[in-house]
Design a protein around this nucleic acid. Structure first.
Lengths: 217, 217
DNA sequence: TTAATATATGAACGTTTGTTCATATTGAAA
DNA sequence: TTTCAATATGAACAAACGTTCATATATTAA
């Protein structure tokens, strides 16, 4: 009994709380944090502004909570579902699956909003910068470096600077993701950019791979 | 006489006007447009807020003027000083000079501020998005495509999709430029990113160039 | 049921904001 | 010097803002 009650209470309670977060994320990511008013948020969920203060101390705390969610979002967890050790043996198909993960972020509403929030507030919010840098950039580039290093040792790809390769693989994906989110804003066609994710992997792999059989000569 | 008077009058008049623009750009690029108040701008130049309204209709007009400057800024004019026709024959050194131009943007205060302003407002301001897309992205990628196409015909580089190459050359440069501006915000060391511009060109050229003399076999 | 708790409301608050305007000051032209 | 246009000032404004709080309502526990 008490268990169930606690659960329903939690569910009911956190429903409005999560609704605030959901609505705020939508508004913050399209108008920016500063330009979004507490009245905007309350209005969008059909509630009076004062109601929000039963769930959050103030407007900043809403943003802080959303930013905390960033750490556990798909944006930051590109490698999470993957075992890092023997992963490199998949070669190109692994790179392709990473690129696809990147691409899909732009097509999930929640993640797209988080990405836009990140892009808009990264110059103003030191915490966002820290999460972006450590969890999104550094961590992924480090793991990519490890993959490329293993591939080099296994003579799957040409030897070289793994960290450079990681950056060169990562940066176009990031750029195409940003391009996607910008095109969607103006409701322009995204097809040309969407195809770039795969083309990037194709070209990248062709440039680094070591051919198994020697040709002609 | 009258000429000189007009000049001095213009200089004096536009001195305060350009001082407003200069101060506003500095503040907009660090706090964002919305978070910067008219009092902030006036205070930073040692003047009362009402004085600004002799030079600009309102706060938005200040931003609009700055945005207009974007079109003629170095950010957008990477190819301007270069003749596009016979340019491709320079090969790698041309790519290197483009990369250097990119890099130097981050080390010029005015251009760095414009870049930060662009990044912060691009999701909110449709005009900025348009300038970014048409003048910064599309125009540069189109010119790069032309270069790579010519290089392919001249058998300097492997044949392939010129537009893909252009995007793959452009996107890391953009990304590294963004990384630079973020690192500078937190006064972190930029040396590792600074070296990426050249490494990118080296690797990129190695991957596409056609060797003049055939080796060994 | 009753008591206790959580959540929503309406009204109000003190600030901050962008902007206006009558007036004062300045600098150039005559 | 006087005249006139350009610019700066101080004060004020209405609107928008984040936040508070006493009160009302709804939900859960006993």
């Amino acid at each position: 009994m008490s268990e169930q009650n606690v659960n329903t209470a939690l569910l009911r309670g956190s429903n409005t709380k999560s609704k605030i977060l959901k609505t705020s994320l939508k508004l913050f990511s399209s108008k920016g944090f500063k330009a979004t008013t507490v009245r905007d948020i309350a209005g969008a969920m059909g509630v009076k502004q004062s109601a929000l203060y039963n769930h959050f101390k103030n407007k900043d705390e809403i943003l802080e909570t959303l930013v905390s969610e960033l750490t556990s979002s798909a944006i930051v967890q590109i490698f999470t579902d993957k075992d890092t050790q023997e992963l490199y043996k998949q070669g190109k198909s692994l790179l392709m699956s990473i690129a696809t993960t990147f691409k899909l972020i732009s097509f999930d509403g929640q993640n797209e909003a988080l990405f836009k929030l990140l892009m808009q507030e990264i110059y103003k919010n030191e915490r966002i910068r820290e999460i972006y840098n450590e969890h999104f950039y550094q961590e992924n580039v480090k793991k990519l470096s490890g993959l490329f290093f293993s591939m080099m040792q296994d003579e799957m790809i040409e030897s070289g600077d793994p960290l450079l390769l990681a950056n060169e693989f990562f940066s176009p994906l990031f750029f195409y993701q940003m391009q996607l989110s910008l095109l969607k804003l103006d409701k322009k066609s995204t097809s040309s950019v969407v195809s770039m994710f795969e083309k990037h992997v194709d070209l990248f792999w062709d440039n680094i791979k070591i051919e198994k059989q020697s040709t002609l000569f």
